[in-house]
Design a protein around this nucleic acid. Structure first.
Lengths: 203, 203
DNA sequence: CTCCATCGATACGATACGTTCCGTTATATA
DNA sequence: TATATAACGGAACGTATCGTATCGATGGAG
């Protein structure tokens, strides 16, 4: 995931800039507060001021280290996402199912879900968040495309199958279910979706 | 699509409520202004005040007829979406491709795209917009599920294929491409995505 | 001890939300 | 035609948030 500006590369040249040393305790408290606010009030209640109040920090301190709400959001996400596994079971359908299921579970049962939703929402009105999100998505598709590549290599999938397209279909399915509160989908339906991608629907 | 509260059913009982007659010219001007603002400035610039300025209307006039930004957004979308066709070519793959292509084109070349993005964004922080969006999505999946139902009936698709899942996969793919600025996807890739759903990737 | 960067706190201008009031205009009824 | 009714545009309000500016206090480094 792209960094936007978080680490404020070396010399911001903004103030006197002799030594910009960030207080780790303060930054950590802010990130924790941001996560807590996001979890309790969702994207609607996520404001810099709410985060500052909760962290007992000053707003300027937040703005000193994060140039925008989007940057803070991305840092919060990066800080705690449990990076879903990319299993290698020997069966493409099983691999993709486990990928999708762990995404659904992660997003439903951990702060990662609300946080990721917030980033997507923010990206609809913040160009930098949009770019970061696009980079992140492309990297994820490349990564989970490996599953299909392996299936092609072992002769399970057709050589002309498009790994990125397969990854795109799976992650698109997960995204829209996240965005429309459908992460509680029953296992049969999720399996049917993955089976459709792998086997198709033709008679 | 659910109406939220737009038409303010009959007797609002809010004021004296003898006859609440809406001025069609005014309402039309507001909807046109909202569409124009959305097109020019996107979701970021879409504010009630901006719409009121552009329509030369008073804010209270807007709030009288639309209870929230989300309601106005939904009305704008409903007013001008060209309702993509649901072709019946005799081939499921061709039907789904044409559905997806017309969705991509509609969203890329008309105001419907930015407007729909805005509704999705709004739904992430407005419960009523979220519910309306969920209803709309369910109705769309039911509707485009007909394509797969026909394919099953004519023996093209397996009887155990799940029409709603197929529709969900196609629309999810379109949604995420809308949300991540990838509506300009080349035809080969879009066809590959549809082909994957219909035929799968197995050797 | 003396710098000096960071800190929390507070205040600020700007923008937007949603509401209230006011004076005007248009329409329906008598 | 005359009157009542209600929607209208406009202005202002109080609240909330954004992002910035300024302050005195704290604490580590030389």
């Amino acid at each position: 995931m792209k960094t936007i500006d978080t680490e404020q590369s070396a010399e911001p040249e903004g103030r006197r800039s002799i030594g910009a040393r960030r207080n780790p305790d303060s930054a950590e408290a802010i990130l924790e507060a941001a996560e807590a606010v996001l979890l309790e009030s969702g994207y609607a209640g996520f404001s810099i001021e709410a985060v500052a109040r909760r962290a007992r920090a000053g707003k300027p301190t937040i703005y000193r280290w994060w140039p925008s709400k989007a940057a803070l959001l991305l840092d919060v996400y990066r800080r705690q996402k449990g990076d879903v596994g990319h299993p290698d079971t020997g069966s493409l359908e099983e691999d993709l199912y486990q990928l999708a299921r762990s995404l659904f579970t992660l997003w439903r049962d951990t702060p990662a879900g609300p946080i990721f939703r917030s980033i997507i929402a923010e990206a609809q009105s913040d160009a930098k968040a949009a770019e970061a999100l696009a980079d992140y998505g492309a990297e994820r598709r490349r990564h989970s495309g490996r599953m299909t590549e392996r299936a092609i290599a072992r002769g399970e999938a057709r050589p002309d199958a498009n790994p990125k397209v397969v990854a795109d279909l799976v992650s698109s399915y997960a995204w829209t279910h996240l965005l429309t509160n459908r992460l509680d989908e029953d296992d049969d339906t999720l399996r049917a979706a993955i089976r459709t991608i792998v086997r198709g629907v033709l008679a």
